[in-house]
Design a protein around this nucleic acid. Sequence first.
DNA 1: TTGCCATATACCGATATGGGAATATGATGG
DNA 2: CCATCATATTCCCATATCGGTATATGGCAA
Lengths: 116, 116
Amino acid sequence: MAAMARAATTSDAFNAIAEPQRRDILALLRAGERPVSDLAEELGMSQPGASKHLRVLREVGLVRVRGAGKQRLYGLDARGLRPVHEWVGGFERFWNESFDRLDTYVQDLKRTRQEE
Amino acid sequence: MAAMARAATTSDAFNAIAEPQRRDILALLRAGERPVSDLAEELGMSQPGASKHLRVLREVGLVRVRGAGKQRLYGLDARGLRPVHEWVGGFERFWNESFDRLDTYVQDLKRTRQEE
DNA sequence: TTGCCATATACCGATATGGGAATATGATGG
DNA sequence: CCATCATATTCCCATATCGGTATATGGCAA
């Protein structure tokens, strides 16, 4: 056993939403449950493509499935996004702060130049 | 030119924070600027490892660098996290709602069983 | 059962990634 | 200029990931 390389991924919400298409799927599902082919068509992806992304989302618990006739309806289960929201929220005061700093920095620059 | 495979990544904040170690770096930087080796040691990663993750973070604009003597101080620039927070926030009402649904679902189940 | 529709899997190719080790680049002090 | 400390880059390996195509599986209807 040697290198192991690349840490495990696609196993948590952070990774699941790193994929733009998966974000699109989640966004669409806010409107309600949808069968796979519907999602595929609406998002312009192949049926297998949709299925695969849905699998990832299911494995991390962001969607649930339910059989309905020969279709399978996928529905949103957004609870897994809460920890993400909280983690990112932990930086809220910093992105405002960063703005301020940049602002004063830029203003300082301007002032300095005018004074020259 | 044929397949293209795998969409571009490590080019936006969503991907940058998909890596646990990079999240750790960002979290640490909330306490203030830090030189590379400091981060590496504190987080138990190699110096090249730290440098590489910092590069990604720099490329997506989540950190800024500043030379200080022979060191390079990395500082947080959290502004890029704002869109992420907003995107995830767009699901806030759904993760509460999901809870409710599950709740009523579970209660329905219980009731049904009792009635049998 | 047989066929048909909807979805899931398997397989493949191209490439992105993360980690380790070695090395290059940069800045500083003497 | 030289030696040294701090950091960045390069190479290499193993593997994860995405997309496409082909195929398997599941459910339903006649």
